[in-house]
């Protein structure tokens, strides 16, 4: 199972994320949880989110970058779902050993994410918060899929990223499957 947690407030108005999501959404055993569609009032159902995570071997977090981090509802999802005693702390081992794939689109290009650019730091400087969130919960952090310059990048390029994204998820899923079978 793959649990794809997706956060975009206006999924129908999205271009970059919509193309990427469409590239993977029909993978078998993949469950897309579009947070803004399920919880427009921010009333996250913690139990069902945790159940979805439990049944998955691979967890995907996909969203546009908003103010150098995840959109508000995704942050709220972290706050509520990754609970103490469940995801971390004493007895909090529900996510141990799961794989975590981060997929993010940003408005800035490579040059904007540099010491002299608009955002003053390398993009790598913004990764640790996400990464540590996953690792604090005992998940294995995978190489993120990042699409910069999301407003300008062509549909063609986006489709290409989408294909790689799809391949990666499928191979990770089968790998995990094999792990289960052989391990």
């Amino acid at each position: 199972m793959i649990d794809l947690v997706f956060a975009h407030p206006y999924p129908k108005r999205s271009r970059a994320n919509r193309i990427l999501l469409n590239a993977v959404r029909d993978i078998s055993n993949l469950d897309v949880r579009s947070l803004y569609d399920i919880y427009p009032d921010f009333g996250i159902d913690v139990e069902s989110e945790q159940a979805a995570l439990l049944s998955a071997k691979l967890v995907v977090w996909q969203h546009p970058l908003y103010w150098y981090t995840a959109p508000g509802l995704m942050k709220h999802w972290f706050d509520k779902v990754l609970a103490r005693g469940w995801a971390y702390g004493e007895g909090g081992s529900a996510l141990h050993g799961k794989l975590c794939q981060w997929v993010v689109t940003t408005g800035g290009d490579q040059e904007a994410y540099s010491a002299t650019g608009m955002h003053a730091f390398n993009f790598e400087s913004f990764v640790p918060v996400m990464r540590q969130t996953a690792e604090f919960c005992g998940m294995k952090w995978l190489e993120p899929i990042v699409v910069h310059n999301a407003h300008r990048v062509s549909d063609k390029e986006l489709h290409a990223v989408g294909r790689d994204y799809r391949k990666k998820l499928i191979s990770l899923a089968t790998e995990a499957q094999e792990l289960v079978v052989h391990g």
Binding site: P9, Y10, K12, Y36, D37, I38, P40, D41
Partner: peptide, 9 residues
């Protein structure tokens, strides 16, 4: 009618 729930909210 297909409008995204958050937008509707």
């Amino acid at each position: 009618l297909g409008v995204s729930p958050y937008e509707v909210k």
